[in-house]
Design a protein around this nucleic acid. Structure first.
Lengths: 140, 140
DNA sequence: TCAATAGATTAGACAAATTCTAAAGAAGCG
DNA sequence: CGCTTCTTTAGAATTTGTCTAATCTATTGA
């Protein structure tokens, strides 16, 4: 759905990112990338790690998530004030956001067109375009 | 830039919204709407009120901002985890976000096209489409 | 005008998410 | 193995925003 994963396993992925393959980082990488594209919060991921009997603190989860973002392995999605989602899909795409449930749904980049974009303010260059389509329960 | 303001003054605006025109709400409405389109945080607005010798607590600033949102006088823009911007422009439009400075710049709705939007997930309806163009300082 | 009342404001406590700090632990390297 | 560097961690601190209970104020109608 978002192209082949570039890494055969977590160890290789961490090595390529220049991050020491510690027990915590290996476990978090597996939790994040072994399944399909995911949108997780730090608390969620920490809960999964604890459930999987991986000894890891919440501070380390935050550290690791930010290191993964820095390495381009992960993307942050901001839809809600006061809570961040971390998206394992780093290809070009956008999101539906279901406000009631807090769920994010990917929209592949080629399934939506953003065109006629004006020039960015003087002295700046576009880094990323985020389209967030906020949806609500349909009264049927 | 965003059409004529629908209200001649703050008093009339609050009345139409069914909100008692208290000293605090009147002052905050003037700070927000007397100038051109603005993007402010709650802390910023509180600071402005205090500077203008308006006695108002931060709690009231938050209450008032949310009441104004409920009345359709204001819109919340979410671009940064852990901080909300309140936008006095409620017409159809989008934003450039300058990450380094935290500044928002309006993009009129008719200056950008979002097309070919896929159907929302079953049982949901689109409430709003937000386009956030993240820009960074251009290395010239 | 004035008292009654419904609604508004406030200080300060509280809450949630995230970051920081300083100390202890683990990796990598010779 | 021992040294050095990087990592993890508990817990404190920070930040943003909300809640509570008491006080205050706008409105209303006699």
């Amino acid at each position: 759905m978002s192209g082949p994963r570039p890494f055969a396993n977590a160890l290789e992925m961490l090595r390529s990112a220049g991050l020491r393959p510690t027990r915590q980082r290996l476990a978090l990488a597996r939790l994040l990338f072994d399944k399909a594209d995911r949108h997780v919060t730090a608390e969620q991921l920490h809960g999964e790690a604890v459930s999987a009997a991986v000894p890891v603190s919440l501070a380390t989860v935050y550290n690791t998530l930010h290191q993964f973002i820095g390495a381009g392995l992960l993307r942050e999605v901001v839809v809600n004030p006061g809570r961040s989602y971390f998206d394992t899909n780093v290809s070009d795409h956008h999101h539906f956001f279901l406000e009631e449930s807090g769920r994010l749904v990917d929209i592949p980049g080629d399934r939506i067109d953003v065109s006629n974009v004006p020039l960015p303010p003087a002295g700046t260059a576009i880094r990323r375009v985020d389209v967030i389509i906020r949806v609500e329960r349909d009264e049927d």
